[in-house]
Amino acid sequence: MKSTLSLLALSISLTACVTINIYFPAAAAEKAADKIIDEVWQLKDGVAMPASKAPEKTTEKVIEPPAK
């Protein structure tokens, strides 16, 4: 009985393995895309971020002129 249960669990885990790898990980791909685009366009640290994307964020972020 117990070994039947174990076998069942085994097959479930195996299916889980397969399932995870069949579907395209859209969220992970978006994260990867964001990372690459930020680097290519050098958008890190809010430099030249599009204002339309986060209107409420722009109010809290005070853009100071460079100290130089």
Partner: peptide, 24 residues
């Protein structure tokens, strides 16, 4: 069987992590 399952679940979770982040 139990240790096999344990091993498999470890393997499985690392697989999940690999899928959660694409290597760029």
């Amino acid at each position: 069987i139990f240790s096999l399952l344990l091993l498999l679940s470890l393997f499985n979770s690392s697989w999940v992590n690999a899928a959660a982040d694409l290597d760029v």
